[in-house]
């Protein structure tokens, strides 16, 4: 396991209007590692992960203080191109959200908006990404079918593949299995573990077993505060904070 620092979060405070959604968060995220965010709903874990690719830019009346350094560069600096950032930091959402287009069109979207139109390249990259997402065998004969006809688990793997095809370096998973059945969940989990050799991965989950299964480091959020952050094993077996212990042993939430 490498110990190369990728993302450094420094004193981040985030407000939705008057609501203080993240309070003074500091965190170091390393390369080729799965970092999990856990906590009860409304604790700020999703808000936190959506800062990393500046998805919260879309929210009105939101203000941010502090820095998020990606490879040493603050992503909130005015000279940062948010489009470039989002290509580098991919995201997979809670509910599978394929476009109402064909599977192939879904895969090509990220490349086409970059201006790549060569069919051969599009096809090649699509195949590679679908293989990485372990979906190729299931869809290779029906690439022109609507993506909405896939099952929920397949749709989510398509969304992962669609994210991989633009070759990001960091991937954010926002509760990727929240709407999936246990078998699909298992497949996605295996996929995430498999992907960590090439990517830096952040996963938000409300499922503690999932965090324990797939992550190397875990962050526990409560009411907008980062209560505890450390190696996953320690968080689950030997938490330092009483509140973390209460949560991981199921005493609240």
């Amino acid at each position: 396991m490498s110990d190369e620092l990728r993302i450094k979060v420094e004193n981040v405070n985030f407000f939705y209007g008057l609501k203080h959604a993240l309070i003074n968060v500091n965190m170091d995220i390393y390369k080729n590692m799965v970092t999990a965010m856990i906590g009860p709903s409304g604790c700020g874990k999703s808000t936190f992960i959506r800062l990393i690719n500046r998805m919260n830019d879309l929210v009105l009346h939101a203000t941010l203080k502090g820095k998020v350094l990606l490879d040493g560069k603050n992503i909130f600096d005015p000279d940062v191109d948010v489009v470039e950032l989002r290509r580098k930091v991919g995201m997979v959402f809670q509910k599978p959200n394929p476009f109402p287009k064909s599977i192939f069109e879904n895969m090509c979207y990220g490349l086409q908006i970059k201006g790549i139109t060569d069919k051969r390249i599009l096809y090649e990259k699509t195949e590679n990404a679908l293989k990485k997402a372990a979906l190729w065998d299931e869809v290779k004969d029906r690439l022109n079918e609507s993506a909405l006809r896939l099952s929920g688990g397949q749709q989510q793997r398509l969304c992962i593949a669609r994210c991989l095809v633009v070759e990001p370096e960091v991937i954010l998973f926002d509760e990727p299995c929240a709407s999936l059945d246990p078998i699909s969940t298992r497949k996605i989990e295996d996929l995430i573990v498999d992907l960590k050799k090439d990517y830096t991965i952040l996963v938000v989950t409300h499922n503690m077993q999932q965090a324990a299964r797939i992550s190397s480091k875990t962050a526990f959020f409560l009411l907008g505060e980062l209560i505890e952050f450390g190696n996953t094993e320690e968080i689950f077996t030997n938490p330092k904070d009483k509140r973390t212990e209460d949560y991981v042993t199921g005493r609240f939430g």
Partner: peptide
């Protein structure tokens, strides 16, 4: 909204999202 987010997360600009995702849908 999730469809729009998918597009933004792939690095699309707002106008690309409108033209290629929102309007076709």
């Amino acid at each position: 909204q999730s469809t729009r987010e998918a597009s933004y997360a792939l690095g699309a600009t707002q106008i690309q999202t409108i033209k290629k995702v929102v309007l076709p849908a």
